[in-house]
Design a protein around this nucleic acid. Sequence first.
RNA 1: GAUCCCGUAGCUCAGGUGGUAGAGCAUCUGACUUUUAAUCAGAGGGUCGCAGGUUCGAGUCCUGCCGGGAUCACCA
Length: 515
Amino acid sequence: MSHELTEQEERRREERQHLEDAGIQTYAYGWDVTSHAREILESFDDELHQPGDDGPAQEPFSVSIAGRIMSKRVMGKAAFFHLQDSSGSIQVYVRRDDLPEGFYSQVFKRLLDIGDIVGVKGFVFRTRMGEVSVHTEELELLTKSLRPLPVVKEQDGQLFNEVTDKEFRYRRRYVDLIVNPQVRDVFKTRARMISAIRRFLDERGYVEVETPALQPVYGGALARPFTTHHNALDMRLYLRIADELYLKRLIVGGFDGVYEIAKNFRNEGLSRYHNPEFTMLEIYVAYKDYVWMMELFEEMIEDIVTELHGTTEICVGGEQISFKRPWKRLPLLEAIKFYTGHDVRGKSRDELVSISESLGLEIDDTMGAGKLIDVIFGEFVEPKLIQPVFITDYPVELSPLAKRHREIEELVERFEVICNGKELCNAFSELNDPHDQRSRFEDQARLQEGGDKETMQIDEDFIRSLEYGMPPTAGLGMGVDRLAMLMTDSESIRDVILFPLLRPEAGGDEESTSS
RNA sequence: GAUCCCGUAGCUCAGGUGGUAGAGCAUCUGACUUUUAAUCAGAGGGUCGCAGGUUCGAGUCCUGCCGGGAUCACCA
């Protein structure tokens, strides 16, 4: 990664040399941080802390802070800069005569730049302009920055020269995080959300487990996998597309409830809703069915929303969404009837084709009856479902791992929660009849022979585990990134993934790629 | 994979119908001991994403490629 240095980069390398020649460390070993910007601003008290005209404050407010210089305003023998730390930013006041001889004019003014990381010791005061600031008594360079940082200015909450270029922000997320501090809040919210999920499930006694990401047989979802190879065993392996079949083996093994928050990998296109690696929560609970799972899920989400936002109602994409329990439940076929006027219940494939055509859908010969229903739903119903709603009971051929509906032959006991027009989770009463499971897998194999690339492989070991006997089980999978998008009102999945996949930068190495 | 939009200085952007590039901030020099998008005076910085083509002449028009975004397809 070499590039021709710009004028400013040359300049900073020279500054670093000058600093080192003067015996000043450019990469220090630490700094004793006692305070953070936000907490200083919050706890400053004019009565107690503000120094008088001719003497110290009643109770001097001494702090030691560290962070990055984000602006610098030199006015002769005094200067101001803003220092940004993990909590926010605070103004620092520097006077020539407070610092060691020569430091101000030779080092601070000439050799310290926006982007450098410094430590400051001093006392807090309020300037004539009314801004709470730190009056420097000691200043030390902690890390020299060799590349110029984009300079974002702000007045009255209005930003100037804000870095908005998506490509720049995703490729250099570290810079994005520096110059767009609200981005850090998104990822803090995501972290708190995941903690809340764990707490909710741990409290109920479910065991967090880890299952293989490298799998000899992929399964648990309909998707194309990434393929890799293990050298020592000379063996083809797939990166997991789901952890479902392993988690159910654990239910066979006697756990009452297990869950995993795992990265899944799917070799598919990218979009604002899809990243090839993404995070999924899967939960399996023994002796329960999908009706019970609906209650668990809505309770969990209501809990999380309340914890993150202090309310069950949040604004997403300009829509007010309420996660207050209970959520509406609507069978899939009724939803289609309500939104399209067509009753597709018990219709043959030919009848469904003509309904689809009358609705203006493009269809092809490979689509079965279940697929057609799925397409109609995705096109005419899903986008209209803004408030969280359970859509229940799906065609059997779309759900090779779900148990048949106890009353309706052609359906399975499955639900999805749709929220803001997108699927949030997928759950079913798990299929635990090994014979039925084998025939569902065989149906999938036939689809594969028909050219469908997103089918399930027959997992013999999984069937074997079912033959030992899996108790009735409810299972659920949820896109963690999708929930993070809702919780942070983000319109792209790339805004809730720190390092989303992008093509390599132009001018990169010529690494060979096989496809 | 398809369609549309975008790619000009470190950053944000301007560059009617083609005449080899501009602004603000950042950077550099100087002034200024409570400023705040600090200010004032001066200076430097660009193979206009890459490669071809049309033209006397291309940032500008055409083609291809690279990268990004949005929509679609597939899915979570």
